[in-house]
Simulated scan of single mutants.
Amino acid sequence: MEKKTFAQKVDAFLMKDETFILLIMGAAAAIFAGTFMYIKFGTGAFNDIAIVQMLRDGLDGGDFAAAAGFAAGFLIARVLEGPLVGILDIGGSLMTGVGIGIPALLLSMGVTMPFDNILFALVTGAVIGLVLGAVIIGIRKLVPDGVAVGGTSIMMGAGNATGRYLGPMIIVAACQYNVWAGIGSIIGGAIFYKLGKEMTGGAILGAMILGAFFL
């Protein structure tokens, strides 16, 4: 029996259904906790300003209809879409749905316990992630073979083709913002380019790392 390398063991672990659910639980817990931070301290939400403002309007005026309707609708659509195309849209399903939609629904019903402290928020987010992950895997297993991944290559191709042109723009923007962020962006982009990866990710990570140290 051939002995597997560490990389092969990691790949095998990441391809398990249980691992997907664990990852969703962790992401959902963090995002829900971010919303808790926003409600308590005014910062920390993982979302676009316009979408967070819907929640802010509900907190200020007591009407959560806009946030709940918009964000929860996104969540349902993305959960149904994920198993069919093979990609889970983190922005629509978790950041918008779990981070804004579900909190708005809970607050509209007067349920405030998940927002009383950070532990409650983390546990609530993890439970939500567990349910979402189980639903997605369940749908994927029920879909007939040959149907489940029909749109994956199209979505991945479109994302990569568009994203690769953003690298130089991100580097220029980082240089305009701050010299350290610019240097980090250049170094990160160059490393990713050398490794054959999309330089956009390297430019963003480089700017964030040096920016965190020197800003």
Rank of each mutant, 00 (worst) to 15 (best):
A72P: 03
I51L: 07
A203Y: 05
L55N: 07
L210A: 07
L107F: 06
V127C: 11
I154V: 14
L195V: 05
G125N: 04
V131D: 07
F70N: 06
A72F: 15
A203G: 02
G101M: 01
K4P: 11
M15E: 13
G159H: 05
G182D: 08
G97W: 05
G146M: 05
F214W: 06
R56Y: 00
M54I: 01
F36G: 07
R56S: 10
G86E: 02
G110I: 10
G99T: 04
D48T: 14
G201H: 02
G146R: 09
I170T: 10
M156Y: 08
N178L: 03
G110D: 05
G157D: 04
A181N: 13
S93I: 00
Y38P: 00
G82N: 04
D11M: 05
L205V: 09
I24Q: 11
A126M: 10
F120L: 11
T112W: 00
V79R: 00
S108P: 00
I191P: 01
I191S: 01
E2N: 14
G188H: 03
F13P: 01
P83R: 03
V179I: 11
N160G: 11
A50E: 03
A71W: 00
A104D: 02
L107H: 08
L106V: 09
F46C: 04
T112P: 03
A190N: 04
I136S: 01
I118A: 13
G163M: 14
I171F: 12
G151M: 15
A104S: 14
E2C: 00
V98R: 03
R78F: 15
L22V: 05
K141P: 02
Q176G: 12
D17V: 01
R56A: 11
Y165F: 10
V179F: 14
K9H: 13
R78Q: 13
L122C: 12
F214H: 03
F32M: 04
A68H: 01
L107K: 07
P144W: 11
Y193S: 14
T96A: 11
I21A: 02
F6P: 12
A190L: 13
A33M: 09
L22F: 03
M113W: 15
A181L: 12
A12Y: 09
V143L: 15
F120H: 14
L205T: 02
T200H: 10
A134Y: 14
E81Q: 13
L210V: 08
G97V: 02
G61H: 12
K3D: 11
L142T: 09
L75I: 00
C175E: 04
A27D: 04
F41H: 13
T43P: 00
M199T: 09
V172M: 12
A72V: 12
K194E: 03
L80K: 00
I187Y: 05
A12D: 11
S108W: 07
M113K: 15
P83C: 13
Q176I: 14
I209T: 13
A28S: 15
V111W: 14
V79S: 02
R164A: 10
A161D: 14
G97E: 02
L166D: 00
G184D: 01
G133N: 09
F20K: 12
S108T: 07
I76D: 01
G206N: 07
F70Y: 14
L119M: 15
F6R: 07
A173C: 06
A27G: 15
L119E: 11
G86L: 10
E18A: 14
G133Y: 06
A7W: 12
